[in-house]
Design a binder for these strands. Structure first.
Lengths: 153, 153
DNA sequence: CAGCATCCGACATGATACTG
DNA sequence: CAGTATCATGTCGGATGCTG
């Protein structure tokens, strides 16, 4: 809550090719959402829960690589944002179920748009990373080498 | 490059409400994109460059809060991903210009969809964070208090 | 089963000073 | 102008052990 929101002046009042609510985006409600999307696990969980509700350990096994700590933290965060609900079945071995709220479900659509873009353009990005112009050195390559040297060497 | 890609098994083969290429999403080309979107500055830069090309210091002043280090790193990352181009004008005081590649421009669309969602649902998320059910204690509230205690002191 | 508490390393981010 | 180099720090994320 302290410095979570990026301080952004009203600089974004540009003109985008299409329908981007820049003026309001400048106010940075999006930044927080972007952060969540960028979370290592959050969107993975959202996507999983998009299919159906899951139990805690069900998620734990499903993602397989996430620690309990992170799973709990992720779920808490999503819950706090109102994207995920949580139901405790007061049975003897306690059973907790997680699922998407309406808000969470509504996120799936723009999220899928982004995921779709990623899938479509992944090759181009990979290609850009590997080699940009075999034979012709761009300043990009030039610059990258400088860093590469330092990084790899 | 070492552990950048999240290891995700073929668990995402669920069924989403709508058109989400889950099977391929599971392969995680999206994860990398998500990471970039979640970057504190990357999407801000992309959006700015979406308006028009910018000079280095122009961006630096525009964002105002980013350090040179981070601006450079951000631009390098975007450049490496093929989202941003970089042109050096070999004038006496060196002038460097940055702009969006076609790939970068294409990203603006799904990005705007997400931003649009953020703007639309920001109130709901804020409300969810503040108070969920005034008077009726949910287990969410119950759980949150536990953490809040520890966090707030 | 579904967590919570604690410790720790890795990386992201920022401040500062210096350079072609 | 457009960076690079170095240092300091905060957060992220994982491992481990314990609880109700």
């Amino acid at each position: 809550m302290s410095d979570t929101n990026t301080r952004v002046p009203s600089v974004l009042a540009h003109e985008l090719p299409r329908p981007v609510p820049m003026d309001e985006l400048a106010a940075c409600p999006a930044s927080e959402v972007f952060r969540r999307v960028g979370d290592k696990w959050s969107m993975l969980v959202v996507i999983l829960l998009g299919g159906r509700a899951h139990r805690y350990n069900e998620l734990h096994r499903a993602i397989e690589g996430i620690s309990q700590r992170m799973l709990t933290r992720t779920l808490r965060g999503l819950e706090d944002d109102g994207l995920v609900w949580r139901h405790v079945h007061p049975t003897v071995p306690p059973g907790v179920e997680y699922g998407l709220t309406e808000l969470g479900v509504s996120l799936l659509e723009p999220l899928s748009a982004l995921a779709d873009w990623a899938v479509r353009h992944a090759p181009e990005m990979a290609e850009a990373r590997g080699a940009e112009a075999p034979g012709a050195e761009t300043r990009a390559a030039e610059a990258r080498r400088a860093e590469a040297r330092r990084a790899e060497g």
